[in-house]
């Protein structure tokens, strides 16, 4: 079958969009890391409060900062996924 340039164009766009969607989904696997990190953070904070209940205020504050830092890599992945979905840089290159 002979392919016209129009068909090629549509095929290329479809391929780019589909693979971008896959890429966005794959990027969000990075959500695992922050999940594990925040779990550790929360668990250790509970242990620390169990050992020293009077320091619970300071421990909670530190835990929140730790959570926020652990979250960063997940947010990088989220930004990449959102870029691929809503502001795709690849589609303009066709």
């Amino acid at each position: 079958m002979e392919m016209t340039p129009e068909t090629m164009q549509i095929l290329a766009k479809g391929l780019t969009l589909g693979l971008s969607a896959l890429g966005a989904g794959t990027a969000m696997i990075a959500g695992l890391g922050p999940g594990i990190g925040e779990g550790f953070c929360g668990g250790k904070a509970v242990e620390a409060i169990g050992r020293q209940p009077e320091a619970s205020g300071a421990i909670t504050r530190t835990m929140i900062i730790g959570d926020a830092l652990a979250e960063t890599t997940g947010l990088y992945a989220l930004v990449i996924a959102l870029l691929l979905l809503y502001a795709n840089p690849l589609i303009g290159k066709l």
């Binding site: 926020a68 947010l75 990088y76 989220l78 930004v79 959102l82």
Partner: peptide, 16 residues
């Protein structure tokens, strides 16, 4: 950069 993306990412994630 991390500070920017942390706040932005959280807010935009809530919105989306």
């Amino acid at each position: 950069l991390a500070l920017t993306l942390r706040l932005f990412g959280n807010m935009v994630a809530g919105m989306v």
